[in-house]
């Protein structure tokens, strides 16, 4: 099936477009936005979708305006951005490690961010801003540790995954220790944070995420062609003129930043980074890292998961991380079973 089209201009410019992938991106984007509108209307004061749209345009009444713009819109924006960041970083990690298990959940970046947050909660009784900074620092430090430990004249797939699993185990043990040292209130706060939740998120969480995505997403996409070549192995991509180690370093840093910031904003949301790239790939049916489809898929998954958690269990009853965990866990099992049937593991 040939879905690649080339669009050319007289000046010698040419752009290659995978029609199927572009369609998938457009449909997922539409789905994510539609789900966002429904999500804004969901809660203790249900608002019909039409009114939500009217309010978003600036034509709603004062009560709706407050609920939509101050309470629910920031939460939805955080969901979209966190999902997008996790989907993209998952696609990057999986492409770089050439392994569907090489996602930030498995590599222990989530645990690293948790360690940072727990340190703030338990040892310093920190404010929510301090917890966010702690999570960010924890995630980045873990990413750096994995990179340094896995470095041996370049970073390679299996070593990255194995080192990540090792680091993850160590950090999880540390987190357990911190929890045993905490008081009951601290422990409650810590556990809610560790499950990954979107409740009570406001504009203060949106802006840093938005700025980071605005810088990193174009940077990552610009290096996507090099990453696509790197699928064929380091030797082939080197021979084709890709600066393999530089591209890999840059993209790993971007992926760690995206994961750490997303985790700092919403807690360690499990499995979105693992599943989004795989689902996107099955939809586009195209080889390559599928960066943009994974990004949109992550955003859509996150919003839908939050909607399910609110719809089924009522607002703020169930943190969204539980829903993504359940969905993602089932998906992972399915992946393992089908891969085994295909004889790959």
């Amino acid at each position: 099936m040939k879905t690649n089209r080339a669009i050319r201009t007289l000046g010698g410019l040419s752009v290659r477009l995978d029609v199927r992938a572009a369609t998938v991106v457009a449909l997922l984007l539409a789905a994510a936005l539609a789900a966002s509108v429904v999500l804004i209307g969901t809660g203790d004061f249900p608002i019909p979708a039409g009114d939500v749209l009217k309010t978003l345009m600036g034509n709603g009444n004062a009560g709706q305006e407050f609920i939509v713009n101050e309470l629910r819109l920031p939460r939805v924006c955080v969901a979209l951005l966190v999902g997008a960041a996790l989907g993209l970083s998952g696609a990057l990690f999986q492409a770089i490690s050439r392994n569907p298990l090489g996602s930030p959940d498995v590599l222990g970046l989530g645990q690293g961010a948790t360690a940072g947050a727990l340190t703030m909660i338990v040892l310093f009784s920190g404010s929510s801003a301090q917890i966010t900074v702690g999570a960010l620092v924890g995630g980045l430090a873990t990413g750096l540790a994995i990179y340094l430990l896995a470095w041996k004249q370049g970073v390679h797939g299996y070593r990255l995954v194995l080192v990540g699993i090792g680091v993850s185990a160590v950090v999880t043990a540390g987190n357990g220790y911190l929890l045993t040292r905490s008081t009951l209130t601290e422990a409650t706060q810590a556990v809610v944070w560790m499950t990954g939740s979107l409740s009570g998120r406001d504009w203060a969480q949106v802006w840093p995420l938005l700025w980071l995505c605005a810088v990193l997403v174009p940077l990552v996409l610009a290096n996507g062609r090099g990453l696509r070549m790197m699928e064929m192995g380091d030797d082939v991509s080197n021979a084709l003129g890709v600066r393999v180690e530089r591209v890999r370093m840059l993209l790993l840093v971007a992926a760690v930043l995206l994961t750490a910031t997303a985790t700092a904003a919403a807690g360690p949301i499990s499995f979105v980074a693992l599943t989004a790239p795989q689902l996107a790939r099955r939809l586009t049916r195209s080889p390559g890292p599928n960066l943009l489809p994974s990004l949109v898929m992550g955003a859509a998954l996150m919003v839908v998961a939050d909607w399910i958690s609110q719809k089924v269990f009522g607002a703020d009853q169930l943190p969204v991380g539980v829903v993504t965990g359940v969905l993602g866990g089932v998906y992972l099992l399915w992946l393992l079973v089908t891969e085994r049937k295909a004889g790959r593991i």
Binding site: N4, A6, R8, G12, L13, S14, V15, R16, A222, R225, R228, M229, M232, L240, G241, V242
Partner: peptide, 16 residues
């Protein structure tokens, strides 16, 4: 087609 990478750029992705 991937062998064409060194001849391509962001604005010249797939020429005739």
């Amino acid at each position: 087609g991937r062998g064409r990478y060194p001849h391509q750029g962001i604005l010249r992705q797939w020429s005739t």
